[in-house]
Design a protein around this nucleic acid. Structure first.
Lengths: 243, 243
DNA sequence: CGGCAGCTTGACTACGGTCAATGACCGTGG
DNA sequence: CCACGGTCATTGACCGTAGTCAAGCTGCCG
């Protein structure tokens, strides 16, 4: 094959993910049908559409977003390596949000048609997929709590910390710095803030040395301090399966 | 048995839910191990705790909520008949939110230990459970869009409309009125608004005749008009499976 | 009757939105 | 080579939605 063999997948062995059994590894190698590259700015899946494929992000970052009728956009959350994409299209008949690539992305692809086969023959993998959905649900719940209860500074601290930790978990940290390719507008749409206020909030965190986001890089000198600003106590990332 | 036989379940035959096959019905009758009653104000499952049971709500309403460290509370969403409770505890090791009964609730209970058995022997039911999780994910996404993008009037219109439609779908509407047992504080915590502002917003909708919420009852004289105020185009409820 | 929980209303405040202008950077084409 | 236009980041001035504080009201239960 011309694409990455799951055997050599650098992602699945990260401590963020539940390790594969031999049986699972064998199945995933047959389940994976290829890879898809999406250029920066491209669309992975589109709200309202069906897709023939399910994906696991191998490289790159993106956003999940929905559009309100009047054009307002909400970024539901960010998409990082290891995240699963396309479940809704398969189960509910259509995607309920759009996934857009911010950096160039490479995704492992699976055939939608064979998902049922997985449920029938690989209950352990089906269980893991449900687990993944439950974890996603948990994250969205956290997100709701942030939008509903935290002010702008707390929101921004919270978001930057979560992103930093997530990227660290997939090995994208160098020292105290991770790449952060999103525009301020993307983060504004994620946090429910205006672009202007987002900018001013980022500037404040930068001045205070809590989180330095600039030039596509995010540096967090002191995790604990940022966590305190965000009102987070638990810094541990939730371990989850990966498909 | 001393509890409701799934054969006679009034919920599962509602058009809101995907019908059972005979095989599924047979399995569910064996999978259901009993019923649990929770008084108004009681706790169904607690954030941070494990549970021995999974539940499907048979009667009554409640809230899913998380507590921030400093005591602020966010209501993630509301719980209505037909909703599934406890997935996270089973898959992730602990509940990530609390489910509290607002009215007295009756829940069908299932043994957590037997969930794996379901994945192994009943792939169709496992598939449905994942489907349910995906639908839940979709709702949380909608919720995030509302908190992030809509102002107080839109949020309230949106929430009351969603609740009204959901209760109608399970047969709790009489004319244009449904029971609405939540306190204004509950809705305030759900919408990320202060109690005072929630009250004023409810009052405005009432004055304008868009939605009359008073005395534990919600009347929506004109769905279309309320939908317009909420910025919703699609009034159709998402059909989903039920366990 | 008193106390409590929940709802209502008014006065004041402030966080975050809107508007507008400017700056930094970059790719393209004259 | 540099001018131009586009995208994104930044900053200041002003404004409005929603938060806070405080008081009063209603209904219910002991």
């Amino acid at each position: 094959m011309s694409f990455l063999d799951c055997v050599n997948c650098p992602l699945r062995i990260k401590p963020l993910f539940v390790p594969f059994t031999d049986e699972e590894l064998r199945f995933m190698r047959s389940f994976k049908i290829g890879e898809v590259d999406v250029p920066a700015g491209g669309t992975v899946v589109n709200e309202g559409e069906q897709t023939d494929h399910l994906f696991t992000v191998l490289q790159g970052m993106g956003t999940r977003s929905v559009l309100l009728e009047d054009g307002r956009r909400q970024v539901i959350n960010f998409v990082f390596p290891g995240d699963f994409v396309g479940l809704q299209a398969t189960l509910m008949g259509e995607m309920k949000h759009t996934v857009r690539a911010i950096t160039p992305m490479r995704l492992c692809s699976f055939a939608r048609k064979r998902l049922w086969e997985m449920f029938r023959d690989q209950p352990a993998r089906a269980y893991d997929l449900t687990w993944i959905a439950a974890v996603e649900e948990h994250f969205l719940g956290e997100n709701i709590a942030t939008l509903g209860q935290r002010d702008a500074t707390e929101r921004m601290s919270w978001a930057l910390l979560r992103i930093w930790r997530r990227l660290q978990a997939v090995g994208l940290v160098r020292g105290t710095t991770v790449p952060l390719p999103f525009r301020q507008q993307d983060v504004a749409d994620a946090l429910g803030l205006s672009l202007v206020h987002t900018n001013k909030t980022v500037a404040r965190l930068r001045r205070d040395g809590l989180a330095i986001w600039s030039g596509g890089q995010l540096t967090v000198p002191d995790l604990e301090r940022l966590a305190r600003a965000a009102g987070i106590e638990n810094l541990r990332e939730v371990v989850r399966p990966i498909l």
